[in-house]
Design a protein around this nucleic acid. Structure first.
Length: 492
RNA sequence: GGUCCCUUCGUCUAACGGUUAGGACGGGAGAUUCUCAGUCUCUAAAUAGCAGUUCGAUUCUGCUAGGGACUACCA
């Protein structure tokens, strides 16, 4: 039997880490089994739907390099794959359930439902849910309510006796008494759109889905879905409920923990390789030592048995580490083109970069590469090249263990040594040694000499290595900045 | 409140019922005769608790505790 799995997001917000991980698990499982990965858009909530969300879904999957075998855009034999385009279908199936006595029309107003709810809360009884007010209306009562123009919903008739069990690959059997299943959930809303439960079950059946891999938050509605499959007389698929992704505080990962949308991560300069690798590692592992996986690796070695049961905490620091690792693996050319948009946004290079700018960006990659965690780091790391804000506070030039007098001498003598050496074309190592000797002569630490020079040239105590900075800046500009710093120390 | 699920270092995780409980991130210390970063080395750090089964429990069973999810005309 061919494995067929689906990722079925609801376009009501940006694709977030949790959703994408579900997509990835489905995708890798399908690929590893030689099966099909299907994308289905569950846009039945017309209130919360947005075009932007739908576009973000496509953009995110494209960026990650996740191709769906069937779904919107690419089509497939079981389409359409957008639920709003299957509108009539759900209605038919829901009405069939009514005809078979498995479901019924309900005319209760939202106000009445709210009142019932409030009364249940006030009476402190266990919350019972819908009171099945319309479960046994006579034809006359119905006709009367129809005549009033009330648009009904269709509710599933949940058995009050017995229990329902479903099997989960990870959890084993999960059983729930039918009386504990949410009483008579709505299948078809009054606007004619199906709820998640109905649409999901119908589509999974019609599209031949063999395995349902979804977040553990769906476990409570598992029995309900089984009841639906039984009502239709269909065979339910195999379930696998994925552990959830939590924030540091153990709550469901959300915005207050930091970025959660893939779009945000992308904007900050995370690489798709890092996102895929790290996100897959929360709740899954191959063995006790392998930590780097490409998408292609995972398409081969992903195993459903290796999925962890317990929820996992999303560690932003570890993602940073992965990202740094992948940045260091990039070729200089690739990294240069990845960094270019950030330099453009900062106004450092023009929107349509010139050939000189292209060369410049490429030339700064080697010194910047091992210092970056995310692509946007390139901006602060190289800003000294593109904007020149001289440091006028002498204290900044003075290294720990040095003083103003020594710093001035170090700057003055050091500048001479440095400039002379550079002009004579001496090796950097040689000049460096001379500067070290200077520090010995002044009886200060090596950094007592380097720090003032560094601040003079890069306008910062933290910078790329001194000689890298000089090479990127050019000799003339280096000389200019050194002279300026010397002047700052001589005046007053 | 009710129902269900979960539990190994701070975090992600590994360990046929038998190991000094392993690795990674993060932390700490050191090296790399310029800062930062990177790289390398070293280091601290865990089986939630209590019973039971067993020659032997991280591993099997039960209970307790803690955490989480769900409880909508949202998915």
């Amino acid at each position: 039997m061919e494995v067929r799995v689906r990722y079925a997001p609801s376009p009501t917000g940006l694709q977030h880490i949790g959703g994408v991980r579900t997509a990835l698990f489905n995708y890798f499982f399908a690929k590893s089994m030689g099966g099909k990965f299907i994308l289905r858009v569950e846009d039945t909530d017309r209130e919360r739907y947005s075009d932007e969300s739908l576009q973000d879904l496509y953009d995110t999957l494209d960026w990650l390099g996740i191709k769906w075998d069937e779904g919107p855009v690419v089509g497939g034999p079981y389409g359409p794959y957008i639920q709003s385009e299957r509108f009539e279908l759900y209605k038919e199936y829901a009405e069939k359930l009514v005809k078979d006595g498995k479901a019924y029309y309900c005319y209760c107003t939202p106000e009445r439902l709210e009142k019932v709810r409030q009364e249940q809360i006030a009476s402190k009884s266990d919350y019972q849910g819908y009171d099945r007010h319309c479960a046994n209306l006579t034809d006359e009562e119905r006709a009367d309510l129809e005549a009033q123009g009330i648009k009904p919903v269709i509710r599933l008739r949940v058995p009050t006796e017995g229990k329902t069990t479903f099997h989960d690959v990870l959890m084993g059997d999960i059983t729930r008494k039918n009386k504990d299943v949410s009483p008579d959930p709505i299948l078809l809303k009054s606007d004619g759109f199906p709820t998640y439960h109905l649409a999901n079950v119908i589509d999974d059946h019609l599209m031949g889905i063999t395995h349902i891999m979804r977040a553990q938050e769906w476990i409570p509605s598992g029995p309900l879905h089984i009841l639906l499959y039984e009502a239709f007389g269909w065979e339910p698929p195999i379930y696998c409920h994925l552990p959830m992704v939590m924030g540091k505080d153990g709550q469901k990962l959300s915005k207050r923990h930091g970025s959660t949308s893939v779009r945000d991560f992308r904007a900050k300069g995370y690489l798709p390789e890092a996102i895929i690798n790290y996100v897959t590692m929360v709740g899954w592992s191959l063995d006790d030592h392998t930590e780097f996986f490409s998408k292609e690796d995972l398409e081969k070695c992903f195993k459903i048995e290796n999925i962890h049961k317990a929820p996992g905490v999303f560690d932003y620091k570890k993602l940073d580490w992965f990202n740094g690792q992948y940045i260091r693996e990039c070729s200089d050319e690739k990294l240069a083109s990845l960094c270019t948009p950030y330099l453009q946004d900062a106004g450092f290079i023009s929107k349509d970069e010139t050939d000189e700018e292209k060369k410049l960006v490429l030339s700064l990659i080697p010194s910047v590469k091992e210092r970056m965690k995310i692509l946007s780091d390139v901006v602060p790391l190289t800003s000294f090249l593109f904007k020149d804000e001289a440091v006028t506070d002498k204290q900044v030039y003075i290294a720990k263990g040095s003083n103003e007098e020594n710093t001035q001498k170090a700057l003055e003598e050091g500048s001479k040594i440095l400039l002379a050496g550079l002009k004579e074309g001496k090796a950097e190592g040689e000049i460096e040694e001379e500067l070290v000797n200077l520090s010995k002569a002044l009886e200060i630490k090596v950094n007592g000499v380097f720090q003032p020079i560094r601040v003079a040239i890069t306008n910062s105590t933290v910078s790329l290595p001194l000689f890298d900075s000089i090479r990127l800046l050019g000799l003339d500009e280096t000389e200019r900045r050194l002279e300026r710093a010397n002047k700052i120390f001589k005046e007053n």
